[in-house]
């Protein structure tokens, strides 16, 4: 993906983030995610039924990378079951950590493939991932796993 397209996707998701501040009801699970070293702080809401993410929303203040990444990732996770979610997160982590990864699985998320060039922003690109991992943990505990 060329730099220009990459930037357009990120900027578009920053300026028009997917389901940011969308109203949610009590059926959504809330997970907070923040970076100790910086100031990003987001609450992410998931509606999960029968092991499938049906809907998402997020609120809070975060930088262009964290916000856009939340937007792209969350949009992508809607409709996925928890196993699929795990696969996506695994591939994404590999990419961020400069390991071999599968582009086809990551789709638009590959816009962050160069983020390792700015080490201080890696955490920004991992912010929503931390939230999804916490969600998986929470759900796992509930099921007694």
């Amino acid at each position: 993906m060329n730099k220009q397209l990459r930037r357009e996707i990120i900027l578009d998701n920053y300026q028009h983030p997917f389901h940011k501040d969308k109203e949610v009801d009590d059926s959504y699970i809330k997970v907070n995610t923040n970076n100790e070293s910086c100031i990003d702080n987001l609450d992410i809401y998931f509606k999960v039924e029968n092991g499938v993410i049906l809907d998402v929303s997020f609120k809070g203040e975060a930088c262009a990378i964290s916000t856009s990444c939340s937007s792209i990732l969350l949009r992508y996770l809607v409709g996925k079951n928890l196993n699929e979610v795990k696969v996506i997160l695994d591939e994404y982590n590999k990419m961020i950590n400069e390991e071999e990864y599968d582009q086809d699985i990551l789709k638009d998320l590959i816009v962050y493939s160069d983020i390792y060039l700015q080490p201080n922003r890696k955490n920004c690109a991992l912010l929503p991932v931390k939230a999804v991992l916490r969600l998986l943990d929470n759900l796992g505990e509930k099921n007694g796993n």
């Binding site: 100031i39 203040e61 262009a64 922003r121 920004c124």
Partner: peptide, 21 residues
């Protein structure tokens, strides 16, 4: 513009400012 993005932007010019609370 989110404060942290401003700080990152200024860092590009080797200008160090603090963002946050």
């Amino acid at each position: 513009v989110f404060a942290q993005d401003t700080a990152t932007f200024l860092d590009y010019y080797n200008i160090c400012v603090r963002s946050g609370n």
